[in-house]
Design a binder for these strands. Structure first.
Lengths: 159, 159
DNA sequence: CCGCATTAGTTGCAATTGCAACTATAATCC
DNA sequence: GGATTATAGTTGCAATTGCAACTAATGCGG
């Protein structure tokens, strides 16, 4: 391994944004691999289902907010789910622009079949950590989440 | 907020894979926003540069391994970088299939200009945590990374 | 009320990505 | 040493995604 000779060292392996990205990717695609093939669901679709299972009647914009997806992604996910008969789409009486989304019985069935898979995977992942470490990790993660949100786009250090 | 009435509760906000994905995404796109516009770099290209800056002379496969990207992504990133005169590409004498990649002077210049931006962003993100918490977080993250790698694709719980 | 700005959601198009097929070189086995 | 198998990297094609433009419905100021 040749010695690096740079004034400012940045090694990818220790760069937090990179590490987060790799872990999130590994985890997401492991999970997606499980339910994509089994249920014909994409990640956005799975997210929509997960949200609607707990809070039926949301609008597309509500779903977008809760899933951190953009409205286009939600629109397409919902279209696919509706076509498969997994969500129902109606117009709100009070505001005919808004849609009112809910899981159909079939959608609920899919949800009930995926949840155990998802939770089992999460459980096996977190089994790496002791309960104390888990809650520690969750706390730190939450704080970083808030912070990253405050920071917004990386600005110039000062120019 | 309607009360959820599901046997197995899975709320997205508390689902670790989801939270990891959201954080990683926020962070990555904040950073990408900074160097994409300023330097015309994609995330894969930035990763290639970061690796080659520290270890010149790697092959494309080496880069793929170190960046957790697949070989196609590396190939295209390198093509773009080579066209922009930021990396040089040669064939290894001993094995004419392998390429020997290095940053050109211009590539090094780009690297030196991005590093401070990237490190500054990371510093501001991690400033949320005390030094002790930072190292705690890094340790836990590393363990989860290993674990997720061992787990591989999410298998059926047992069927 | 009537125009003007806003908001919800969809669609089109261009860029990105992922996977499989392909080319070229190298290693292996008989 | 010649056929077979494996490896490095590229390319083509199809699917995903992101952004901007668009439609439809609502709200608001005069």
């Amino acid at each position: 391994m040749p010695a690096p000779a740079n004034p400012l060292a940045l090694s990818l392996e220790h760069f937090m944004p990179y590490r987060l990205s790799v872990l999130a990717n590994t985890v997401s695609s492991a999970l997606a691999g499980a339910y994509a093939s089994r249920f014909g669901l994409t990640i956005p679709q799975w997210r929509v289902i997960a949200v609607l299972a707990r809070v039926p009647g949301l609008s597309a914009a509500d779903v977008a907010e809760r899933t951190a997806m953009d409205k286009v992604a939600v629109s397409r996910a919902v279209t696919g789910l509706a076509r498969a008969g997994r969500v129902s789409r109606a117009l709100a009486a009070s505001d005919k622009r808004r849609s009112v989304l809910s899981l159909t019985v079939r959608g609920q069935a899919v949800y009930r079949r995926i949840v155990p898979l998802a939770l089992a995977y999460e459980r096996r992942l977190l089994a790496e950590l002791s309960p104390a470490e888990q809650s520690q990790f969750e706390t730190l993660l939450l704080r970083l989440q808030k912070r990253s949100w405050q920071l917004g786009p990386a600005r110039e250090a000062r120019v």
